[in-house]
Amino acid sequence: MTQDTYPKTEGDARPFASEKFTEATRIPMWDPETDDVLVCRQVRQETHDVKTFLFSGREPRDFRFYPGQHMTFELPVEGMIFRSYTISASAARPYRIEITVKRVPGGPGSNWLHDYMVPGKEINVSGPAGEFTTDATADHKVLFISAGSGITPMMSMTRTACDLSEPSDLHFIHAARSPSDIIFREELALLAAQNPGLKLGFTCDTASAQHSWTGYTGRLNMQMLSLMTPDFMERKIFCCGPASFMDGVRNMLQSTDFAMERYYEESFDFGAETAGTVDDPTAAPEISDQTFFVSFSKTGHVVECGPGITLLSAAREAGLLPMSSCQRGICGTCKSILHSGEVDMQHGGGIRQREIDQGKILICCATPLSDVVVEL
């Protein structure tokens, strides 16, 4: 309740009850500039190789994020690695953060989380960040298409839409290896039963008799898509999954003359281009026509950096292999220290202002404006 719910009676000098309630229960907002620690509160096994990790702040915090955004986790593996994971929770439930992670064979980040993240353990994070989002409660037709763990941003959008109001017209198609690999299968069925505006479709690569599978079998194709969502040509389409899966969906839609400006995709390889977005030429930074020397303090390498070349590209030119992921200043993986010189850094939220004030930069989106020395 808010103060405006019940008006005060004229002449009543007593403290208004809802004012006391509001003051007593007001929870500070999560501030990405100052807050950077989450505490694991619960771990749920979703499938045989997928877990959901539920976090909150050390003290209660009100998280504000758009469904589909991600957070970057600092994981104590091989010294320290950074991994970005999509928030799978509903944005309408702002006091917790959930990520849903598939164990990847040989994947240092996912394996560490599966093996060592337990209730009570703390982890350093940054974010939320990301631009892959939509309002599934709006008055337009939407189609989500996902595969594997690419279901996570779609699940956040779907949960949010169902929490806020019934989705007006949302179709959700998911592809999995087998029926037992369908993440959130039971919850999605429940949401669809409670929300007539939500329609589901599944296809599995393989299905055994023990699963009593009555859905589609095989890779998603045009015939399946037309049967599950006959009016897909009229919808906004959001796609997420392995690169090969998204390539297939994109090619399939292009073959039907679908209006690709209504197609949006998100990849867990943040370096991939995102369809449905257009660069704004007015927002492009000025590029110096000068050439500068870039020195890497740890290795002693020095390279010449031409106009518009990022420090990450310069490092690779020097034969170095610094950790990086998104190459757009979003994930924070390539964070380093600028010891001297000036750079132009057009980041996308992967670094805090206080870190910039401490001399840290993201080398994937920083171009030199002078000779520079970088800690690599």
Rank of each mutant, 00 (worst) to 15 (best):
M155W: 04
F245D: 02
S146C: 14
S165K: 15
V374P: 05
G300C: 04
V374I: 11
S267E: 07
S88P: 08
R352I: 05
G350Q: 08
F172E: 00
R352L: 10
P285W: 08
L188W: 05
V50P: 03
R328L: 10
G11F: 08
L227W: 09
A147Q: 01
F132W: 02
L312R: 00
L320I: 04
M117Q: 10
S156Q: 05
V302W: 02
I97N: 06
S110T: 12
F292V: 04
S168H: 12
A318T: 00
A283W: 06
T72G: 15
G350S: 10
C40P: 07
S370M: 06
Y6R: 14
S110K: 05
G130I: 06
G359K: 07
T214M: 14
R103G: 10
G109Y: 09
S208K: 13
C326I: 00
S126F: 10
F232E: 01
Q210V: 13
F258Y: 12
L190Y: 10
P60F: 03
L38M: 09
G130D: 08
K141M: 10
L113W: 06
R250N: 12
Q327H: 12
L362H: 06
S255C: 06
H347C: 02
V142T: 14
C40M: 09
S110Q: 04
F172W: 09
L200V: 01
A275S: 13
L321K: 15
R83N: 15
I337F: 15
I287K: 09
N221G: 10
F53C: 08
V39T: 14
F238L: 11
K8D: 12
K51M: 14
S56H: 09
M260S: 04
A176Y: 05
G319R: 02
T22Y: 10
P28H: 05
C331E: 01
D205P: 02
D371G: 03
C334V: 01
A161P: 03
R41H: 11
T72S: 14
L54E: 14
P242M: 05
E19K: 12
P196I: 07
S146T: 13
C204I: 04
I145P: 06
G308T: 00
F172I: 00
S288R: 09
F63M: 02
G271I: 08
G79I: 03
K236P: 05
S149D: 05
A259P: 09
F245M: 09
